[in-house]
């Protein structure tokens, strides 16, 4: 269970450009829910993710994960239980390290980074198995630097890497936005497989309304720091892409873009 309790977030406080994004923002996400978040640019989707992960400071309120207040934990400590995939495929991997080295790093998340051997040879066959599940032939390229892979391949690796360790929450920040439609579909299918297999509680920000309807078990639409639509369960099942699009157009006209 992830709870956001009366969050406040201001940008540029104390200047003429002061902007209040969240005022008394509340959200509860039960375990194993797949929340798809849609909304126009500047609606606060990514800011919400950043607040959860601790990438930006919170101005008020509490973030509670499984009953534990994590609002004052630094970002890296929160990440023990959180996996995040970014829009930019380069952010989830180390370009100058090989596929094997990247997998080894990810495998060791939550453990101690001490003077033991970086790559555990006994685990290589397991890494190969994981990579094979991607169907991208990466298991044959263990000693290739990740920087020479395509964006889609890197994003697939990033997804694999951040879900390798025991995490509870998966944060997807427009993780298919930088990919071509076919690769995006493939990554989305993979995401769904992993989420189901590992029973992760997931928050996915996306601009692709079809993905939101198809994969989300709950849909949120955000606008100017507020949740203006929240459908889960039966209500969500009856929601179609077109209805969502109508609602989306409506708010876009309101603010004149």
């Amino acid at each position: 269970m992830l709870e956001l309790q009366s969050l406040n977030k201001y940008y540029n406080p104390g200047t003429v450009n002061e902007m209040c994004l969240f005022r008394d923002f509340n959200l509860q996400i039960p375990d194993h829910e797949f929340v798809a978040v849609v909304g126009s640019n500047g609606s606060g989707k990514t800011s919400m993710l950043n607040l959860i992960c601790g990438s930006i400071p919170l101005d008020g309120g509490k973030i509670v994960a499984n009953g534990r207040d994590i609002s004052n934990l630094p970002d890296y400590k929160r990440n023990k239980r959180i996996g995040r995939v970014y829009q930019n495929p380069a952010l989830g991997t180390c370009p100058n390290m090989t596929i094997l080295e990247n997998m080894s790093l990810a495998d060791n998340k939550g453990g101690r980074f001490n003077l033991r051997r970086g790559t555990n040879k006994a685990r290589i066959s397991y890494y190969k198995e994981l990579l094979q599940s991607l169907n991208l032939g990466l298991e044959e390229k263990l000693h290739v630097k990740v920087g020479s892979l395509s964006g889609g391949q890197r994003q697939a690796m990033a997804l694999l890497m951040c879900t390798m360790s025991e995490i509870e929450f998966l944060i997807l920040d427009e993780h298919t936005a930088a990919l071509d439609p076919k690769t995006a579909d493939r990554i989305m299918e993979l995401t769904d497989e992993i989420v189901k297999k590992k029973k992760l509680t997931t928050i996915m920000v996306t601009h692709n309304l079809r993905y939101a309807v198809e994969y989300g078990s709950r849909i949120l639409m955000m606008h100017e720091g507020n949740i203006i639509l929240d459908k889960a369960g039966e209500e969500k099942k009856s929601l179609s892409t077109n209805e969502l699009l109508d609602r989306f157009t409506h708010i876009s006209i309101e603010c004149g873009n």
Binding site: N79, C94, N108
Partner: peptide, 14 residues
């Protein structure tokens, strides 16, 4: 090496 390559990943690795 990861820290020089991609700081964000180090944070992601907790």
């Amino acid at each position: 090496r990861a820290a020089g390559d991609n700081e964000i990943l180090v944070t992601s690795l907790a």
